[in-house]
Amino acid sequence: MRELEASLLELVRRTSTEIPDDVQKALLESLEREKKGTVAEEALRIIERNIEMARRKSQPICQDTGSVLFYLEAPAGFDCVGFEEAARRAVTEATRRGYLRQNCVDPLTGRNDGTNVGPGFPTFHYDFHSGGEATVRLILKGGGCENVGTQYALPYGPLKADRDLEGCRRVILDAVFQAQGKGCSPGVLGVCVGGDRATGYEHSKRQLLRKLDDRNPNPELDRLEREILEAGNSLGIGPMGFGGRTTLLGVKIGALHRVPASYFVTVSYMCWACRRQGAVLNAEGAAVRWLY
């Protein structure tokens, strides 16, 4: 159990302080693309420097260390209770060490006890399988980008969005417009087509586990991802909403079956500080391989 707790503490540290390579690569490309001598270019330069400093000093990339979202893929019979206890201890220790901000507030009393542990905090998602390995992934998602996430119900008249992929394209682009720079652009979109109010958001966030340079196995969604990436960047919102060439670093879309009466399109926005990491755990809970 101590081994697992140590692995989870290291998982939190890496997630908070080290940006994944694929995200850094996309940011570097956006810096090269940006018009020289603009405030947008300067913003991206500061972001690059910030990424390097966070890694070197082992300190948070962003002070808003966000919602703490664990995704576990585990063999049937995995000790979930023990895992959650170890994760809560690791999160509290990571907070004490300054890898995480004291970021968890009781909404009724306004009290922040500084532990980052409370109802729904951290959050755990499970998928069980018949294999032998357990894999844990972590997303840290800041409040600024969480606040610009949104959900549309199609048809949506103001945008002439019908219940089809063209309708999806229209509302997703509207979500990018509505967000402006407030979600800390350039951002990554996680989208779910279908599902219900709750599963739509859950599945849209899960898309943020995908690497930016992967391809959607569904050719229609793959095409939609590319179209939105290009059209979103042509809106000219730019880094921080300063105006510029890169508004989105990536678009990842999944789909869930829906009931006939509902057609939701849910958009989760991830800031440029797209913090995700993961590890394969052995039976003792040691991290044997890092995933990003």
Partner: peptide
């Protein structure tokens, strides 16, 4: 936004804190 390290480096000193208990 998000440049927490670049900006924290420019903070030379924390002089004081107010409402720490009340606001967290």
């Amino acid at each position: 936004g998000g440049a927490a390290q670049v900006l924290a480096e420019r903070i030379r000193k924390v002089r004081n804190v107010y409402f720490l208990e009340e606001f967290g």
